[in-house]
Structures are given as structure tokens and as C-alpha cells.
């Protein structure tokens, strides 16, 4: 009987749940991107295993239209200082160069921590499936290749997934009426007023990028510690920016925890927020030399479709801010 009990015990212990195996630590990944404000101002980053990047050359465009369902924002090209004046007049034909004078109040797109306040603003009543436009005529002004451009723009009533607008040079009576259909696979639709065409090659499809590393025009006073290059408008600078794919990405900027110590358990309880743009993240201005340097204490923790990543900049090299390369360290959590 004793032997039987022993056999029972030996067999019983032999068959058990297999313990979890050990996996070596997965090395973090480094990627290097180069930004040039005049030639290649934009790089799209797709996080993953491995991370991939897509650099885009500079293309002429002025306006972009939100494609997200029920969103109707109209924004300007962030790499150019484009200013907008809302005449609050509905008659397109009455707006001309005489409509602006020294007292004209111009506005710019204003980048907030979790949103971008459009200079066009709320152009209609969006409480309907087909928004009803207030039909205000806007004047747009920007400088390109030392040439001043003045355009007028009137948003017509929108269809359920279509923008209609009327535009033309401010000093001409001729105009164009354009239709832009919301394209659900991209965040924005882009339009060049100068070239009279929709530009479709700027943004990759929505599932093919998480971060867009580029430039953003903003007030110099707002970002005193961040390096910038000057623009045609003295009060505005061209800052490095991180545009985020806000349809798929939520972020948390951790300046307390070391990059090495950030892991999944640490990250999953953080309060992530949707953000469209983050100016100057990872960039720091050397107070003595005023050179650009990386801020490695800033860790961007990013959640996308239940995957977590942490990113930091480990090195920035470049003769000028307009042309530099930045090395990121990326760890999937």
C-alpha cells in the first residue's frame, strides 16, 4: 500500500503546469531622421517591430481639411506663417484689397497642448449632418519665395462628407469653386490655393504612421526655451514639432521616470491624452551657446491600439536648426 502511495505521489508531481520560460531583454531600437525646413521638412514615423520612417519632400499647399467624421476643422500649412482675417461679410464679390487696412486683425492657427485652434475658426453650424456655413469670406495672406500672396476664401454649405468652398486671388474677380471629399483613410485633405489643386501625396494612410516629425510656426514668446528659426513675421518662429495621429495615438510625457525604468506595468495606469501636436518636444536650447541639444529627460509614452511605446531623443546633430538630424531611442513596452 505504501508503495502505491509513493507511486501516486511521484506521478502526481510529475504532471504539472509548465513554468513560464525566461526571455532575454529586448533591446530598444534607435532611428535617425533628418529634417530640412526648405527641402524635406516632414518625416512620418510608424512605430512597430521594427519602426519605419517615411520622409517627404516639401510640397506647396496652404489649407488642410479634417477628414474625421463629424469634424469640420480647416487649418493652414504649419510650416508657413499663413495669416487669416475673417471679414464677417457674406458677399464674396465685395471683398477686395480695400477690405484690409492697418487695423485688420489677423489670426494664426494656435497650437494648444491638446488641440490646434484654427484661425478659420467655427465657420458654420455643425449641429446638422450637412453643416450650414455662415458664408463669411476670409482673407488669407502669406509670403512665399519673397512674394506676398493675398487670397479670399468662402466656405459654402458642406455635404455630409464633402467640403465646398469658393476661392480666388483677392485682387481678382475671377474665382474657383472646389469640392473636397472627406477621405476616411487619411486625417486631412490638403489643398494648394496657388496651384488650384488638391494635393494627395502628402500624408500616408492613417494606419501607416503614428508620429509626424516636422515644423510648426508659432509665437516666439510662447516657447522661450525651445530653439527656432525666424520667419517672415518677426513675432513668429519655426519650431520643431511632433504631430500625432490623434485617431490612433494617445500620449503621456514623462519627465520623472528614467527611460530604462519605464515598462508596461508603469505605463498602463498613466492618464493618456489625445494630442494633435507637441511643439519642441525633445529639443532644448543651450543657454550659453544657443545651440540645439536633445532633452533626453523627456520621455514620450505613447499608446496606440493597445500597444505601448516609449520614445526619447538621444542626440541632435546639425549645423543649423533648419537642417539637422535627430536620433530617437524607441522601446516597445
Amino acid at each position: 500500500m505504501k508503495k502505491a502511495v509513493y507511486v501516486f505521489l511521484v506521478f502526481s508531481i510529475n504532471s504539472c503546469f509548465t513554468p513560464d520560460g525566461y526571455l532575454p531583454k529586448i533591446d530598444s531600437e534607435t532611428i535617425n531622421i533628418t529634417l530640412n525646413s526648405t527641402e524635406k521638412p516632414s518625416t512620418y514615423i510608424k512605430l512597430g517591430f521594427p519602426t519605419s520612417t517615411l520622409t517627404k519632400e516639401k510640397i506647396n499647399w496652404q489649407l488642410r481639411f479634417e477628414n474625421t467624421a463629424d469634424e469640420w476643422g480647416i487649418y493652414t500649412n504649419p510650416t508657413e506663417p499663413i495669416r487669416i482675417f475673417n471679414t464677417e461679410i457674406n458677399r464674396y464679390d465685395l471683398i477686395n484689397l480695400n477690405s484690409i487696412d492697418g487695423n485688420t486683425t489677423w489670426g494664426y492657427d494656435d497650437v494648444k497642448s491638446n488641440n490646434i485652434k484654427s484661425a478659420v475658426g467655427r465657420w458654420g453650424d455643425f449641429d446638422f449632418p450637412n453643416p450650414e456655413s455662415y458664408k463669411d469670406v476670409y482673407i488669407l495672406n502669406w509670403t512665399q519665395d519673397s512674394q506676398d500672396y493675398y487670397y479670399k476664401l468662402q466656405i459654402l454649405d458642406a455635404d455630409i462628407n464633402t467640403y465646398h468652398f469658393k476661392y480666388g486671388p483677392l485682387d481678382e474677380t475671377s474665382f474657383q469653386i472646389e469640392t473636397i471629399n472627406k477621405y476616411e483613410f487619411q486625417l486631412y485633405s490638403y489643398f494648394s490655393l496657388v496651384n488650384n489643386e488638391q494635393v494627395k501625396t502628402i500624408e500616408p494612410n492613417i494606419n501607416e504612421w503614428h508620429i509626424h516629425s516636422s515644423y510648426q510656426v508659432d509665437s516666439i514668446i510662447k516657447h522661450s526655451k525651445i530653439p527656432y528659426s525666424s520667419t517672415s513675421i518677426g513675432s513668429l518662429g519655426l519650431f520643431p514639432s511632433f504631430e500625432l495621429n490623434h485617431e490612433h495615438v494617445e500620449i503621456f510625457v514623462d519627465t520623472v521616470t528614467n527611460f530604462e525604468q519605464i515598462n508596461y506595468v508603469h505605463s498602463r495606469n498613466l492618464k493618456f491624452e489625445k494630442s494633435k501636436n507637441s511643439i519642441g518636444l525633445f529639443y532644448l536650447k543651450d543657454t550659453i551657446t544657443s545651440h540645439v541639444k536633445s532633452n533626453s529627460k523627456q520621455n514620450l509614452i505613447l499608446r496606440s491600439d493597445d500597444e505601448y511605446y516609449v520614445i526619447r531623443a538621444i542626440n541632435i546633430i546639425g549645423s543649423s536648426f533648419n537642417n539637422h538630424s535627430i536620433t530617437f531611442e524607441i522601446k516597445k513596452l
Partner: peptide, 15 residues
């Protein structure tokens, strides 16, 4: 249960 097979850390998942 979320497990890290490198550190041996285990936590109840929030999923």
C-alpha cells in the same frame, strides 16, 4: 494576467 517573461513580473490585466 499580464506577464513579463524577462523580469518575471505578473499583474492582473486591465483589459
Amino acid at each position: 494576467i499580464d506577464k513579463d517573461l524577462n523580469t518575471g513580473q505578473q499583474n492582473l490585466s486591465t483589459h
